[in-house]
Design a binder for these strands. Sequence first.
DNA 1: TACGTTAGTTACCTATTGGTTACTACTAAT
DNA 2: ATTAGTAGTAACCAATAGGTAACTAACGTA
Lengths: 122, 122
Amino acid sequence: MQAQNLKYSNCNMQRSMAILGTKWKPIVIWVLRERKARFGQIAASIHIISRKVLTTTLQELEADGIITREEYKELPPRVEYGLTERGQALLPILRQIAQWNARYFGEELPHPEHDEDVLLNC
Amino acid sequence: MQAQNLKYSNCNMQRSMAILGTKWKPIVIWVLRERKARFGQIAASIHIISRKVLTTTLQELEADGIITREEYKELPPRVEYGLTERGQALLPILRQIAQWNARYFGEELPHPEHDEDVLLNC
DNA sequence: TACGTTAGTTACCTATTGGTTACTACTAAT
DNA sequence: ATTAGTAGTAACCAATAGGTAACTAACGTA
């Protein structure tokens, strides 16, 4: 998908997909749902993302105003990432996207009392 | 995005994005939200999609159980596409995705009484 | 036979996404 | 000088998504 071009589409859905519809962005947003995290923490949470791809992903999310990036003047260098309000607003949508998949493709329906991490299994 | 691999991800969100996170699939689903349509009608609604890409998109959506495909034994050949229950279940999610974009990237907030076509502008 | 209508199919191409590998910047501590 | 810890960067590549252009299948009708 040529997301960069789609960001200027007339269609609100297409523009959203251009921002979100990639392999790692939803995961990064999910990792940041409850607290800020540093680059290395995000990488460790995700397990198998390359530094190169994580860097690009974070840069794009920041450019789209979905996450914040704060540098701390200290050593070792420390950068913290967190969700903006715009990013927070995506969380219920991501939950529904995951629920849809679990419901229609999963082998059993998820129970409401299941922890979110189990639901998403990310 | 390598959607074909992602369909087998552990993560429900990633699997959904593999199915949905492309340029044309959300649009095709939206076009079919209220009534079944033929190949040519879908193409005309979307305006600028190539027959090649529309064919591929429809095949994949059918394979994922999101749309139905009915051939009619008549001439000219007639094929009708419609949403499955699984596909219908995606509509509220797509609406929210569009609303999110309109709210956080649009120049003014959409009014509740605005028609859906205006909201999505697809 | 030629044409019309519908839903494709095929060959080829470009641009993007995601990945591997190696390297970098910075400074304190050893 | 070397090492450590953190967040990157650069060069290169494979696979995929989307696209153009041309062609095809099927049969009824003129």
